[in-house]
Design a binder for these strands. Structure first.
Lengths: 152, 152
DNA sequence: ACTGAAAGTCTTCCCCG
DNA sequence: CGGGGAAGACTTTCAGT
């Protein structure tokens, strides 16, 4: 990770489909050298994947919610986490400090679907002692872009 | 939005750098027709952007937190939201139902930086009556991919 | 809205420094 | 690790349906 890699990352963060030749011009390297560097960043796991960001509302995914989950005992953790990975409506799962154990972000079509997800897909798992649902009324900012600042 | 567009979206969601010719084979169209369709999806706003997903920890962004914010009075809302858009460490901002008004997701390098963000960048804004910070200890799943199911 | 062909561009491979 | 050239692949444009 040097300053050239940082430049590459910043540019690719904003446009994952940028052509190597364009990227090359920006960073002042030849196209093959640029492609090499990006491949290396991917192999190292610094670049995880290239994603297309869609408008949830335009696809009928109008409802979002955060669900805080409390787990009863540690032996329930692994099966819980495994199941969470499989649930497509659970976009994020964070282990958090504080009153609750896990915080999930969910996106779905409507309240009935949300009800089904929470009741049948999450609460039915073993060892869940409590859930606390917070409805998202409007999303004003949403990005995965890291706050890479000029000094980086 | 027909079933062909849904196929395109599903494939691009997983690999934003997929070549038009490859995509074309998957959906059974010619390359020019495929490129046309993707451009149309972008113009319609269904495709928002192509993003490169990085590993936060590998770039020194080891700390994450959710910050719940309560706003005192409605006239403080617009300046607050405007400022939030400008803060690079605030990755997400959702207006939520319930006890608090807004829920922010933050990523930063360490606790000192988090302290600075909450104290100097957020709490210093006018009209903030209360904040409640929840530290992320481990992120087990994180994606922007919508749960587009086979039936879509 | 899509196809097919042609023209132009970009990527990839390889060898050299 | 990076440059440059050549071969091949890909994208883009355009005419035609």
């Amino acid at each position: 990770m040097n300053s050239l890699d940082m430049k590459i990352i910043k540019l690719l963060m904003q446009d994952a489909r940028m052509k190597w030749s364009t990227l090359a011009k920006h960073i002042g390297l030849s196209a093959p050298a640029t492609a090499d560097r990006v491949n290396r960043l991917q192999e190292q796991g610094i670049i995880r994947r290239f994603e297309t960001v869609l408008d949830p509302a335009r696809l009928g995914y109008d409802l979002g919610a955060f669900v805080a989950v409390s787990l009863e005992r540690p032996e329930h953790r692994d099966p819980f986490l495994q199941r969470i990975q499989e649930l497509p409506h659970v976009l994020e799962c964070h282990h958090v400090a504080g009153e609750d154990d896990y915080l999930l972000k969910i996106r779905c079509r409507n309240t009935e679907e949300l009800d089904d997800i929470i009741t049948n897909q999450i609460k039915s798992l073993h060892g869940i002692s409590r859930t606390k649902t917070t409805i998202i009324m409007r999303t004003l900012k949403e990005s995965t872009a890291l706050p890479l600042l000029p000094e980086d």
